[in-house]
Amino acid sequence: MRASGVLRLLALVFAVVTTCMFIRSYISFSVKTIRLPRWLRPATKEIRPVRSKCGLSKPCPGNFFAFKISSGAANVVGPSMCFENQVIMSPVKNNVGRGLNIALVNGTTGAMLKHSYFDMYSGDPNKLVKFLKEITEDTLVLVASYDDPGTKMNDEAKNLFSNLGSTYAKQIGFRDSWVFLGAKDIKNKSPFEQFLKNDPKTNKYDGWPELLELEGCLPRRIP
């Protein structure tokens, strides 16, 4: 091949390569720079997760109260209670204690009436009995154990809890776990209750059964 032919071939190859590089560069530049202004872009709807009261997995119907009750974990982490998205007892609020933690709520309005805790290991069980006897009609009773709910609980207190709808009150003993929601003079046993016996063979913690958690929707009482 003559020298002139080689030169023409090289010139052609150079021209083709240069053209391809130019086109590629131009297309890339166009893609990167030609964008719609923000006001012309399609609006993207922000999706926010729906949060139910007290962190329930599903929201409660309009005429129902949302609640969540957690027992204590051994003698380390205290119990907690949430009612209608209001935390009424918890270690953070520093209003829980060893034994039985009890909150009273108006069954019609959902208003918090009062709360207290009773030492069932070395305290006076008569204080608990007095507290339970003063509960009036249309009152919801939320209960959570912490450490030891049963050593000092006497038969009178157990009967009073049974009248509030508890199935397991008469079985509660040393270091059992218990969460419960009942009401004054309930006709049937409450469906809102969990109980776990202190058993060295099944205990999750060293000397205590595992934490219990109770949540759900409770119908408002119609005045």
Rank of each mutant, 00 (worst) to 15 (best):
G62H: 14
A103T: 03
I47F: 15
F65D: 06
V31Y: 15
W178G: 02
E134W: 02
E193A: 00
A73R: 14
Q86T: 15
L12E: 05
T19S: 10
E84D: 12
G107C: 08
S177Y: 06
K189H: 09
N159K: 11
Q86M: 13
M120K: 00
F195H: 02
S122T: 14
F174C: 06
N159M: 09
S71P: 03
D199K: 03
M81A: 11
K130P: 01
S28N: 15
L196H: 05
S57I: 07
P42S: 03
N203H: 09
I186M: 15
L214I: 00
M112W: 15
F161S: 03
G165H: 07
Y146H: 04
K152V: 07
S145R: 01
P91E: 02
S145G: 03
K201T: 08
L181V: 15
A73F: 11
A103P: 04
F131A: 01
Y205E: 14
T167W: 04
W39A: 14
M89H: 04
F22H: 08
R175F: 05
R38C: 09
L211I: 07
E134H: 04
K197L: 07
L100M: 03
K189W: 07
L100D: 00
K197V: 08
N126Q: 10
Y168A: 05
L10D: 01
R41F: 07
I47W: 13
F67C: 08
W178T: 02
D119A: 03
I34Q: 13
F22Q: 09
K68H: 09
G207I: 02
S162G: 05
C60F: 06
K127G: 03
T108F: 09
S80C: 02
K127Q: 10
A183I: 05
L128W: 00
G165P: 04
R48L: 15
L212G: 01
D138F: 13
F180N: 03
P219R: 04
K204F: 11
F180L: 01
S166Q: 02
Y205F: 15
Y168W: 04
D185E: 09
Q194Y: 03
N95A: 01
C20I: 14
S122L: 13
T151A: 05
T18Y: 06
T109L: 06
K127W: 05
T167G: 07
M1A: 14
